[in-house]
Every structure is written in C-alpha cells, then in structure tokens.
Simulated assay, not measured.
Amino acid sequence: MRRLLSGWDSLDPGLAHLVRLNLLALVVSIVALAGAYVLGFRHRSVEIDLAVMVLSLLFMLGTLPLTPRHGAPVVLIGLTLSAAAFGVGGTWATPNLSPLTALLMMIPMLVAIPYVSRPWLNALGVFAVVGSAGVAALGEWRRQDALNELWWVNAVVIASSLPAVVLVVTFLVRDAYQRLSEKGDQLVESRTLIVEVADAARRSIERDLHDGAQQRLLAMSVTVERARKELLAGRHEGASRLMDQLATDNREVLLELRELARGIYPPLLTERGLVAALQSTARRSVVPVTLDIADFTRPSRQVEAAAYFCILEALTNVAKHSGATEVLVTVRGLPHLSFCVSDDGRGFDRHVVTPGGLLGMEARVAAAGGTLHLETEPGRGTTVRGEFPPLDATG
C-alpha cells in the first residue's frame, strides 16, 4: 500500500499524512456503508451516498501521478473536487447530512493554509463560503421531499459518513496546535542560534581582517617609513624600490579586501543571480569544482542568498579540511530549488567534530524555509544537501 501511495511522498510530511488519513477515512466509510447495504439496508439514498464516496476516493487517487511534478496545489484541487462531490451528492441523497457536508466544504481551505499562497487561499475561501451555503440550501430544499424518509436510512448514512469528517477535522485541529507549539520552540531556538551565528560571523571577519589586511597595512606603514628615510638620506634608488614594493602591497591588499567583501555579499549575486555567482566562485576555488545546474529559475533573494552562502561555506570547508581532489556542485530548480555539494575527501565523524559552520548553514537555510542534510563518514567524503519549498508554498 505504501508503494501505491508513493506519489504523495514528495509532499510536506504533514500534508502527506493528512491526505493518507483522508483516504483511509473514505475507505473505512465506503466499507461500512457497503457492509450495511449487503446486510439488507438497501435504499436509493444508500446507493447514491456509496457512489458519491467512491467518486470522492477516485478524485483523491487521481492526484497521485500528478503530485511529484505539481506538488501541493494538485492535491488541494483533488481534495476540493472530492469535498464538492461528497457534499453535493451526499446532501442530495440524505438532506440530514447538510450540517456535516457544510463543514466538509471548509476542509480544503483549512488544509491549504500552511502550503499555498494567498491567491490560492482566497479561492479556497470562496469555495468554502459558497459551497457550505449551497449544500445547506440544498439540504433544506431536499428535506421537503425527504420528509417521509425511513429513519434508518439517515441513521445508516450518517453513522457511516460522520467518522471520516470528524477524523479529518480532529487531525487538522491537533496538527495546527502541534505546529504552533513547534514554531514557538523553533522561534526560541532560532533567536539563540542567530545570535551565536552572528557572533561567529563577526569573529570570522575580525580574524580575516587581523590576519590579512591589517597585517599587510602595518607592513606597508613600515615600508613607508623606510622609504622616507631613504629619501632623506638621498638614496633615491632604494626609495624607488620601496615605492614599487608599496604599489605591489597596495594591489594585494585591495584584492584581499575585495575577496572579503565578496564573501560578505558578492555584487555578482545581486546583479546576475546564483548561477553567475557560483560560476565565479568555482573558478576561484582551490579544489577543482564541477557545476551541474539544470531547470534553474531565479528564486527569491532570501532563498538565493541562503543557497549561495551555504554552497560557499561547504566549498570553503572542502578546501580547508577535506583533502579532496574534486567537488561536484549540483543545483536543480524544479520542482523546487535544491542543491548538493559532494566531495571525495576524507570525511569526518559528526560525533567528534564540532559542527560550528554547519549550524550557521542550517540557520541560513531554515530562515528561508528550507532544510539542510549532511552525509559524511571517515574515508567516504562529505555531501551537503539543501532543499527549499516551492515559491507558491512560501507565499
């Protein structure tokens, strides 16, 4: 069964779990109603409700082959069609179901809140309002014709249908509470992490300035003093050599400061985007870098910066610590932006090495709504993978 439903594996775990739960609830309701029908509770309304449930189930199953490419929107469309079929058909056959079907019309909007953009939510909100009002009106209109309906028909249909809706609504409420609790914990944790990462970044810049540009500038001041003394002593040839050295040192300091500024936020990333910035970084890398980029469309600035700096940090770690002879950087734009930095270096034991740089990378990716994974073992190289949600899921 897990294999048959693998089309939903690309969804957010919470949404995938909810869709599978909805499918299970529909199957249970169909089996219960079909069992009642076989046992002798045969009536036109039972047959219609049974057909409606099967149609709703087919709408959900129809999203399986489309989900890997189109993601959450296609699942929500299937859920909306399923709710509409269940709501209208169930109310027509059994008007007493109208309070239940009116509630059912709101489920697609409630499910969609964490996963889609505002225009999607507005459309689903219209469906919820119009759909719930429509099935309520249909129920009242049909109730006149069903006034003499046998009591057991309504009892059987409601008893079979109610658990499915109640189960889904209960999960939605519980899931919303759980998400809020997790977000609160993550907020507290991220505040601490942001402070730690910012302090580490400041210390890194200070160290780079102290060990690089500052030392060169001090050396240049000494060279200036020596050149002044040469000029005062009338040794113009010696002074000229020192001035040539100053010019060379000045160019090197400027180059070093440009490199430092590029590491803080490269202009190329802003002007031409992630691909151009990565190509420039790959050309300057000490370890040979192979870029494999496909299906790329420029993402939001926050996602682009997070992806770039994580890849840059991974390449820096490769050059400093891995002993690798080559690195492969893979970037994919569909169905969502993802990247992978893989080297053939010595790897390391995650339980022994302090993951200072990794914390900063995780914080950057998490701030952009993504996730980061590290795969490494001693002697087997290191792979860093990052994934970001689709643009419509980040709003």
Results as ranks from 00 to 15, higher is better:
Pro355Phe: 07
Val169Thr: 02
Ala84Pro: 03
Val153Ala: 00
Ser342His: 08
Ala93His: 00
Leu81Ala: 09
Val352Gln: 15
Ala85Val: 06
Ile158Ala: 06
Ala305Leu: 10
Gln214Phe: 03
Ser10Leu: 05
Ala219Asp: 14
Gly7Thr: 00
Trp152His: 04
His70Met: 07
Phe171Tyr: 04
Ile264Phe: 00
Glu377Arg: 13
Thr270Asp: 05
Thr297Gln: 14
Ala306Ile: 13
Leu374Cys: 07
Ser280Gly: 14
Arg262Ala: 09
Glu196Cys: 05
Thr63Val: 11
Glu225Lys: 08
Gly234Phe: 06
Ala201Ile: 09
Ile293Trp: 05
Ile113Leu: 14
Ser221Lys: 07
Pro99Val: 07
Ala133Ser: 15
Glu196Lys: 13
Ser132Val: 14
Met106Gln: 10
Val329Arg: 04
Leu5Phe: 02
Glu47Pro: 03
Gly184Tyr: 06
Leu5Asp: 01
Ile30Pro: 03
Gly370Leu: 06
Val168Lys: 00
Ala324Ile: 10
Ser98Met: 12
Tyr308Cys: 05
Val329Trp: 05
Met109Ala: 05
Asn148Thr: 06
Ser29Arg: 00
Arg241Trp: 03
Ser181Asp: 09
Thr248Gln: 01
Ile194Pro: 02
Asp211Tyr: 06
Asn148Glu: 12
Ser161Phe: 01
Leu104Trp: 00
Val130Tyr: 12
Gly263Gln: 08
Leu58Gly: 13
Leu50Asp: 03
Val54Phe: 04
Ala213Met: 09
Asp249Lys: 04
Val116His: 04
Glu47His: 06
Val327Arg: 02
Thr67Ala: 00
Thr325Trp: 07
Arg350Phe: 00
Gly238His: 11
Glu259Trp: 06
Leu246Lys: 00
Gly395Met: 06
Leu11Glu: 01
Glu326Gln: 15
Gly71Lys: 03
Ala247His: 12
Arg20Ile: 11
Ala393Arg: 04
Pro119Phe: 01
Tyr115Ile: 04
Pro65Phe: 09
Leu4Ile: 03
Asn154Met: 03
Arg226Lys: 15
Pro119Glu: 11
Leu209Trp: 01
Gly212Thr: 10
Gly184Val: 12
His336Glu: 13
Leu39Asp: 08
Leu260Thr: 11
Leu104Arg: 00
Ala146Asn: 09
Val75Cys: 04
Ile264Ser: 02
Leu18Ala: 06
Val130Arg: 14
Ala112Cys: 08
Gly323Leu: 10
Ile205Arg: 04
Val38Met: 11
Leu24Thr: 04
Leu254Phe: 15
Gly323Pro: 05
Ala227Tyr: 09
Val253Pro: 08
Pro288His: 15
Asn96Ser: 13
Trp152Lys: 05
Asp49Ser: 04
Leu337Gly: 07
Met105Gln: 09
Thr101Asn: 04
Leu57Val: 07
Phe348Pro: 00
Ala247Met: 13
Phe348Tyr: 13
Ala16Glu: 10
Leu372Val: 09
Ala366Glu: 12
Val331Asp: 00
Leu61Ile: 10
Val195Gly: 08
Glu252Lys: 06
Gly78Glu: 05
Val54Tyr: 03
Leu257Asn: 06
His17Glu: 13
Ser29Met: 00
